[in-house]
Amino acid sequence: MPSIRETRELDYSAEQMFDLVADVARYPEFLPWVVATRVKSNTETEMVADMMVGFKALRERFTSKVHKNRPDSIVVEYVDGPLSKLENSWRFEPLEGGRSRIHFCVDFTFRNRVFEALAGQYLDRAFRKMVGAFEERAGKLYGSNNSSAHSAA
């Protein structure tokens, strides 16, 4: 089962990063390979959303339940789609000076062995690119503080 764990220290608050990650409706604006999203329901603590991801001619739809514990964590529960398993979590740790440490983890298994083989070849680079996209989006939304963001993985 492919797995990625990434930790980054950023010049943005834990609450700012929580808000950015929780804003699933805007993912197509900045996340690579996210073609469309549809939020089916959304409360302060839980969201159900569809996400369409695509790469070249491949397109797949996922449905997830997103558990939100503001401003500490976001845990994604897989509901339906091309995977047999998905575990995804974000943890937001406040640091001094309004900075934060972000912990991202994703583990998944495709039902389709061909997708599993393809994902295995590109997984690490693709997910690091996606985490970087969240970081870039934070800079656009909250301003660049001459960010000294770095990976702590």
Rank of each mutant, 00 (worst) to 15 (best):
L118S: 08
F30D: 04
K129S: 12
D80M: 04
G143Q: 09
K129H: 04
Q16M: 06
K56S: 11
R26N: 15
K40F: 09
M1S: 15
M17P: 01
N146G: 14
E15F: 03
E96L: 07
P94C: 02
H150G: 06
K140I: 12
S147Y: 00
E44L: 12
E87A: 13
K140S: 09
Y78G: 05
G120P: 08
P82A: 06
V131S: 10
F18A: 01
L31C: 10
S73Y: 02
E136K: 15
A117R: 04
F108V: 01
I74C: 00
N69E: 12
L118A: 13
W33D: 15
Y12N: 06
A14D: 03
Y142A: 05
W90S: 00
E29V: 04
Y122P: 00
R99N: 04
T45W: 00
Q121F: 08
Y78V: 10
D19M: 07
R26H: 15
T37R: 11
P82H: 08
E96S: 13
D11H: 13
R125T: 10
A49V: 12
A57T: 12
S84F: 07
A22C: 12
R125K: 15
P71V: 02
F127S: 02
E77D: 15
T63K: 05
L95W: 00
M130G: 00
A57H: 11
D72K: 09
W90R: 03
L141T: 06
A152V: 14
N112D: 14
A22Y: 05
N112F: 01
H150R: 10
E9W: 01
I4S: 00
R101K: 08
